[in-house]
C-alpha cells in the first residue's frame, strides 16, 4: 500500500526553509561588532560645564539595555557639587528598578572626585553592596581617571564592574577615552531564536509524521 507522503514532505521542506531563514538572519548580524558597552562608553560625551550628557552613539542597539540611551540623555549632573540632579522619571528598567533613586541621592566631591554620599538605605536587590562600592570610589578630578575603587570590594554580582571601573579614563572635556580592552560585555544567551524554535517544531512534526507513516498512519 502506497501512502501520500506530500504532507510529510511539505512539513520537512518547511522545516528546512525555516532553518535556512534562521541561518540567514544569524549571518546578517554583524558579529564582529557585538553590542558592547565599551563602544557605547567611548562614544559618549559629557558637557563639563553643565554635566549633561550631550552625545551618545545613535546606532547603539544593545538589546540587553534597550533604554540605557534614553536614561543617559535624560540624566544631569551638577558640575559644582557633583550631585545627580535629574534622571528620567519614567525610567522603568526592570533590571534596576531603583537605579534612579540611587543616582539622585549620590553626590561627588567636584574637587577631589571622591564620592561623598550614597543612599544609606539603598536596598536594591542584586546590588546590596553597591553603596560600599560607591563610597569607596575616587576619581582624579584633573584627568578623570578612576584611581581608587575599593580594593576589598567583593560583590560577587559585579566582579567585572570593579575591573571595568578601574581601567576607565575620562578627559577633562568629559569624553571617555579608554575602557579596558578585554572587558567583556554582558552577553545574553537565549537557547534558541524564535525562528530556530519554529524550525525545531516543524522538524519534530515531520519526524512524528514519518514515524506514523511507517506504521501505516497517514493524514487521511
Amino acid at each position: 500500500m502506497r501512502h501520500d507522503t506530500r504532507p510529510l514532505r511539505a512539513v520537512l521542506a518547511g522545516s528546512i526553509l525555516t532553518f535556512a531563514l534562521a541561518g540567514r538572519l544569524a549571518w546578517s548580524v554583524d558579529s564582529s561588532s557585538p553590542p558592547d558597552r565599551s563602544s557605547f562608553a567611548t562614544a559618549t560625551v559629557v558637557n563639563p560645564t553643565t554635566g549633561e550628557i550631550t552625545a551618545i552613539p545613535p546606532n547603539f542597539t544593545n538589546t540587553g539595555a534597550p533604554d540605557r540611551s534614553s536614561f543617559a540623555t535624560a540624566t544631569v549632573v551638577d558640575p559644582v557639587t557633583g550631585q545627580v540632579t535629574s534622571t528620567p522619571s519614567a525610567y522603568t528598567n526592570t533590571g534596576a528598578p531603583d537605579r534612579s533613586s540611587f543616582a539622585v541621592a549620590t553626590s561627588v566631591d567636584a574637587a577631589t572626585g571622591q564620592l561623598l554620599s550614597a543612599p544609606a538605605n539603598y536596598t536594591g536587590t542584586g546590588a546590596t553592596d553597591r553603596f560600599t562600592f560607591a563610597a569607596g570610589t575616587t576619581v582624579t578630578a584633573s584627568t578623570g581617571e578612576l584611581t581608587g575603587p575599593p580594593t576589598s570590594y567583593t560583590d560577587t554580582g559585579a566582579l567585572n564592574r570593579f575591573g571595568a571601573a578601574s581601567s576607565t579614563t575620562v578627559t577633562a572635556g568629559g569624553q571617555i577615552t579608554a575602557v579596558p580592552e578585554d572587558w567583556q560585555p554582558s552577553t545574553i544567551v537565549p537557547a534558541m531564536s524564535t525562528v530556530v524554535a519554529a524550525g525545531l517544531a516543524l522538524l519534530i512534526l515531520a519526524a512524528g509524521l514519518w514515524l506514523l507513516a511507517r506504521r501505516g498512519v497517514t493524514l487521511e
Partner: peptide, 8 residues
C-alpha cells in the same frame, strides 16, 4: 560573572 565578563 567570570572575571571581567558576564553571561545573562
Amino acid at each position: 560573572f567570570y572575571g571581567w565578563g558576564s553571561l545573562r
